[in-house]
Structures are given as structure tokens and as C-alpha cells.
């Protein structure tokens, strides 16, 4: 690192730019999904209310909860309570991990029991699985990357090397992952509920 000191707000702005660009990436995927759904009017709607939608709703609430703990982590570092910060970051990581665990359970269920794979499914509209696993997979990759990111943050905060802006920036990323899910959940799950 160079010796000069940058003004505050740099990292926040940088993260915002990343978030905007990544939002376009997800939007592109959802536009692709919509276009393909138009092109395939017989799009399957396989999700039952229980367990399908109920399970996804629980996942959504878990992810939302991890966002809340992230907010508290940022609050804590602002008040310079480093230990508390690490604890809330830990809680956030736990929430994210739970989300991934639930998600993987769901994937396994779909792959093995319901026979929905990226390339095929019982209704002969293979794109259903492609879109489902493509969109949720990219989101899950973001959550997983977030877990690594937050772990590095937590380690840095407990060592005292990271400051308020670093945690805030991590928070921006985490909330962004949450925002994306707020669109994935209704469009991928709810719009495919059994009629």
C-alpha cells in the first residue's frame, strides 16, 4: 500500500459501483429467464406450497435475519465495540451458512426426488431446470463468496486491522446479496407455484 491516506467513502463508493454492476448481471439473467419463458409457453409450475414454497419462504427469512445481524455488526463497530462486532459477524456467517445448507438440501431434493436437473425434467421443458439452477446457483455463489468475505472481516476486526468503513463495505455486499434474493424468490419460486 502506498503511504498516502485516501479520503473516507472511497471503499463505500467502490462497493456501490460493484453492487450496481452486479445487479445488472443478475438482471440480465432474469431477463434471459423472462425471454425464455415467453418462448416456451408450456413453462412448468412444479412447486407445491408445502414443502416447496414453505421451504423457500423459510430460506428467505433466514437470509433476511442474517441481514439484520449484519446491520447490528455495523452498528457495533461504529460504537467501537469490536468484540460485539465479531459476534454479530459470526451470527451473520451462521445465517448465511444456514441459508446455503437449506438451499443445498432443496437442490438435492429436486435433483434426486423430483428429477429436475439443469438439462432435463419430467415436463420436457429442460430450460426450467437450467434457469432454476443457473439463477439460484449464481446467487448461492455470491452467498458463499460473502461467507469468505465476512470471515476475513471478522478475523481482521478481532485483530484490530479493519476499521468502520471495511465493515460497512462488507455490509453493503451482504445486503446486496439479500436484495438479489428478494427478486429471485418471487420470480423463480412463486411464479412457478402449482396452479
Amino acid at each position: 500500500m502506498s503511504a498516502h491516506r485516501n479520503p473516507p467513502g472511497l471503499k463505500t463508493l467502490g462497493m456501490w459501483l460493484f453492487v450496481l454492476s452486479d445487479m445488472l448481471t443478475f438482471s440480465t439473467l432474469l431477463v434471459v429467464y423472462s425471454a425464455l419463458r415467453f418462448a416456451n409457453p408450456a413453462w412448468p409450475r412444479p412447486f407445491s406450497l408445502n414443502p416447496g414454497i414453505l421451504f423457500a419462504t423459510i430460506m428467505t427469512i433466514v437470509l433476511l435475519a442474517s441481514s439484520l445481524t449484519m446491520v447490528w455488526a455495523v452498528d457495533a463497530i461504529k460504537r467501537d465495540q469490536r468484540k460485539r462486532t465479531v459476534q454479530w459477524l459470526g451470527a451473520t456467517i451462521l445465517g448465511g451458512a444456514a441459508f446455503i445448507a437449506l438451499h443445498l438440501m432443496e437442490w438435492c431434493h429436486l435433483l434426486t426426488v423430483e428429477n429436475i436437473t439443469p438439462a432435463s425434467n419430467p415436463w420436457n421443458v429442460p430450460l426450467f431446470g437450467a434457469v432454476f439452477f443457473g439463477v439460484t446457483g449464481l446467487h448461492m455463489a455470491h452467498v458463499a463468496a460473502g461467507l469468505v468475505y465476512l470471515s476475513v472481516l471478522a478475523a481482521g476486526v478481532s485483530r484490530g486491522t479493519f476499521c468502520v468503513e471495511d465493515v460497512e463495505t462488507g455490509g453493503l455486499y451482504w445486503h446486496f446479496v439479500d436484495v438479489v434474493w428478494m427478486f429471485v424468490f418471487p420470480l423463480v419460486y412463486l411464479m412457478a407455484v402449482k396452479p
Binding site: D22, T28, T117, L127, A130, G134
Partner: peptide, 19 residues
């Protein structure tokens, strides 16, 4: 940001059997 998902989807078509 738009090319990236385009490339990823093309790669999925090739490697994961999507269409």
C-alpha cells in the same frame, strides 16, 4: 456486466447440458 452472464450461460450450455 452483461457479457459476463452471457459467457457463463454459454459455458453452462456446453458443460452442464443446458439449452
Amino acid at each position: 456486466a452483461v457479457l459476463l452472464p452471457g459467457g457463463v450461460l454459454l459455458l453452462l450450455d456446453r458443460l452442464a447440458g443446458t439449452s
